[in-house]
Write a protein that binds this DNA or RNA. Structure first.
Length: 492
RNA sequence: CGGGAAGUAGCGCAGGCCGGUAGCGCAUCUGGUUUGGGACCAGGGGGUCGCAGGUUCGAAUCCUGUCUUCCCGACCA
């Protein structure tokens, strides 16, 4: 059996690219740095989106939509913010084309220059806060809890499908609060929503933490994050939630009258996850045979593959049984497809659905039906077993739960095995080079040391875990005193 | 944006030094036989060789430019 997939061991990057393309998730487009998300990949995104959207609404948020274009002057109102994004912005300078008088197709009409250039949003804080100014007058208007699903553009120099593309899809929540405490609570609540989504739906354990000052979002007071570990031992930031303090309120003059009729600046948060989660999902679970989808987020949970022979009567019986199974599974809310395409043979279908990561495969042929059973294969372990038709629906539902749990446990164990406490510089470098993963080490708390460690090892501080154990020690680089270990890793 | 590699049929590649009517495998189409881990036989179709210039009687091949992708650096969700 050969699926022409590069193995993880051989070349991890190539394996990742092969999976994305061959499983039909996405492909590179004609536009530099941009991808086409194909139907299977988009179905996955839709599932993620639907679950998250429900979670946002359960926590009191509403969706809205703000413009793709941001006047250039808006971006410069918050100093740290513009500093952070200026280097990767696409800029609209003209609004019209015309025929090239020299006959070379169309050219930008030099007469149609915009008075003020428009920035294609790299994130929407500025346009949103300039709007919120008009929406907020009194404490009665607070909290303002808005989310938007949108595309954003960051002109990246080096791109990788899903992990880093010039344009990507995401959601960005933007909230305004009367007090600092409330805004911090919102930031933490949304981080927990992300963590829950990653762990319970994507079966991907994450570390909840806060970023150091140098890794902080441009314009934030504090950036909270969830960090996941990929199978090559590299870390991946899977979601962020920012406490923005009053920075944007001050930059855009967003004040409210409190109960004592005093004018106060509002407190803000923003939080987002993107199609990058798809990259995380792939690298957390998939194997050399292809994708492995966690059942709770899989576009397709069960596929039924018929094994026909020449006997037309048996064929009819297979079709009938498959229809019965499908009806019963669907009644339980399980997505299922009967792959009765007559142009490919069973072996082809097995390999194809493994490549696409369908969690459960049910095969049925004449031989099974004689015994009132089907063959059930699970994608995570590749185990096959015969199941009685009687009680099959419940058994499959149970199996999907088992797979979900097994994927989580497997990833959790991998992370545990690849998290190392280190107390010396030599050991630090050695672990990073030979083992990878998270390295828990003491750091003196200064950006200078952090920067030096990054230069020497390419490892960054992924986060300071929430509720981190306080433990006196000395910095692995400088030997200065430290109060706690932080998590280092090489990262995507 | 610097250093390296590559772009030839839907996919994977050969041909290129040494210029002379574009080839292989898979896929696809037709017919038939098949179906429990990527079936077999026979016949057929499909390419302005990434794009634009140049050299030449003649360019996939030589030259120049340009675009895109991949790998390695600087930057980032």
């Amino acid at each position: 059996m050969s699926n022409n997939l590069t193995s993880r061991k051989e070349d991890y990057s190539k394996w990742y690219n092969d999976i994305v393309k061959k499983a039909g998730l996405a492909e590179n487009s004609e536009v530099r740095g941009c991808m086409v998300i194909k139907p299977y990949g988009f179905a996955l995104w839709e599932n993620m989106r639907d679950v998250l959207d429900r979670m946002f609404k359960e926590t009191g948020h509403q969706n809205a939509y703000f413009p793709l274009f941001i006047p250039k002057s808006f971006l410069s109102k918050e100093a740290a913010h513009v500093e952070g994004f200026a280097k990767e912005c696409a800029v609209v300078t003209h609004y019209r084309l015309k025929n090239d008088p020299n006959g070379g197709g169309v050219i930008v009409d030099p007469e149609a220059k915009l008075e003020e250039e428009l920035i294609v949003r790299p994130t929407s804080e500025t346009i949103i806060w300039s709007t919120y100014k008009n929406w907020i007058q009194s404490y009665r208007d607070l909290p303002l809890l808005i989310n938007q699903w949108a595309n954003v553009v960051r002109w990246e120099m080096r791109t990788r499908l899903f992990l880093r593309t010039a344009e990507f899809l995401w959601q960005e929540g933007h909230t305004a609060h009367a007090t600092k405490e409330e805004a911090v609570a919102e930031t933490e609540q949304m981080l927990e929503v992300y963590a829950k989504f990653a762990e319970e739906y994507m079966a991907m354990p994450v570390i909840r933490g806060v970023k150091t000052a140098s890794e902080r979002f441009a314009g934030a007071e504090e950036t909270y994050c969830i960090e996941a570990m990929m199978q090559d031992g590299k870390a991946l930031q899977a979601g962020t939630s920012h406490f923005l303090g009053q920075n944007f309120a001050k930059a855009f003059d967003v004040k409210f009258a409190d109960k004592d009729n005093k004018m106060e600046y509002v407190w803000a948060t923003s939080w987002g996850v993107s199609t990058r989660l798809i990259g995380a999902l792939i690298m957390a679970h998939s194997d050399d045979e292809g994708l492995v989808m966690p059942p709770r987020i899989a576009p397709l949970q069960v596929v039924i593959v018929p094994i026909y022979n020449k006997d037309a009567e048996a064929r009819q019986k297979i079709d009938n049984t498959a229809a019965d199974i499908m009806r019963a599974l669907r009644a339980k809310g399980i997505s299922v497809k009967f792959d009765n395409d007559d142009t490919t043979r069973p072996g082809w279908k097995f390999a194809e659905h493994e490549l696409r990561g369908v969690p459960v495969r049910i095969a049925l042929g004449a031989r099974d039906l004689e015994n009132n059973q089907v063959e059930v294969a699970r994608r995570d372990t590749k185990e096959k077993a015969s199941y009685q038709l009687d009680g099959l629906t419940d058994a499959v539902a149970q199996l999907l739960d088992d797979i979900q749990q097994n994927l989580y446990n497997r990833a959790l164990q991998f992370r545990a095995e690849h998290t190392t406490k280190v107390d010396s510089w030599d050991e630090f470098v050695k672990v990073l080079d030979e083992k990878g993963g998270f390295v828990a080490a003491h750091w003196d708390g200064t950006p200078e040391t952090e920067e030096q460690i990054k230069e020497k090892t390419k490892a960054t501080i992924r986060c300071i875990p929430l509720n981190n154990e306080q433990e006196a020690g000395v910095c692995i680089l400088t030997g200065k005193p430290s109060i706690q270990r932080v998590l280092f890793a090489r990262a995507y």
